[in-house]
């Protein structure tokens, strides 16, 4: 059955256990960082950082708010990156869970920048060897009946994971509850993605890419054209 996340930012305390658990499970190296005048670190997602809690201080209606946004791949339905890659050995959707998976073959993508550019949430990052990386829904854990590492360690119930139907139900309950405190509370792109965010305020205040950038869902005309004339490199490697 298709899986989904609910990320309820109204109860996220920004503890970042999810960020650490993600690195630990995937055995990703720590980045060497500096404090640049903020708790948020690293400053952005990277080839080695799939999950990042973004932190913003905003004055909303005259009151200070500290907004936490645990950012990760949304595992889109009809993922634009998958379409842009058009190369199932590199990017495919796991049929059982709906996880959008990148493999080491992403190094052979014809135009990795198209794949990156196709993402409405600005998620994929390229490594030194040309391959792309991002959140994999902890597919290995999920296939073995475990929760994704980030969800497992979340102390407050901000991160939730399960069968899509159940998650949609919880999301709806949480939204109704949140609206009592936050009249502007809303879910972000719930029909288009498997990682549904519940936010209390204007999503742009959390992160520029909290909601899909305008017109980005689906392929651009340029990408579609290029796909028509693309043949050799990826085809060749695919045959191997």
């Amino acid at each position: 059955m298709s899986k989904s996340f609910l990320i309820d930012t109204t109860v996220c305390t920004g503890c970042r256990a999810c960020q650490v658990a993600c690195k630990q499970w995937h055995n990703l190296p720590a980045e060497e960082t500096k404090n640049v005048g903020s708790y948020q670190n690293p400053q952005d997602l990277s080839f080695n950082t799939y999950k990042l809690v973004r932190m913003n201080e905003e004055e909303i209606d005259g009151k200070l708010q500290w907004l936490f946004f645990p950012e990760q791949c949304r595992h889109c339905f009809d993922a634009p990156c998958e379409a842009a890659a058009d190369y199932p050995a590199a990017i495919f959707t796991d049929s059982a869970t709906g996880a959008v998976i990148y493999t080491a073959n992403t190094k052979d993508l014809w135009e990795p920048s198209d794949v990156i550019g196709s993402c409405p949430y600005n998620i994929p990052r390229q490594g030194n060897r040309g391959d792309l990386a991002k959140c994999d829904m902890c597919l290995d854990r999920v296939q073995n009946g475990l929760l994704p590492a980030c969800v497992k360690v979340c102390p407050t119930g901000a991160l939730n994971f399960g069968d899509r139907e159940d998650i949609l139900k919880i999301a709806d309950q949480r939204l109704q509850a949140a609206k009592k405190r936050f009249p502007q509370a809303t879910m972000l792109d719930p029909d288009a993605v498997r990682v549904i965010y519940l936010v209390a305020y204007d999503p742009k205040l959390y992160h520029d890419y909290a909601v899909a950038s305008a017109g980005a869902l689906g392929m651009t005309r340029q990408m579609a054209l290029r796909k028509m004339v693309r043949p050799i490199k990826s085809l060749g490697s695919r045959l191997l």
């Binding site: 305390t13 970042r16 690195k23 720590a30 708790y39 670190n41």
Partner: peptide
């Protein structure tokens, strides 16, 4: 959140130092 006490058990953890260096 990211460190504990004098950091003896956390400053040596690269993942935690990454968060609060």
């Amino acid at each position: 959140s990211e460190h504990w006490q004098t950091g003896l058990m956390t400053r040596w953890q690269p993942y935690l130092l990454e968060l609060q260096p």
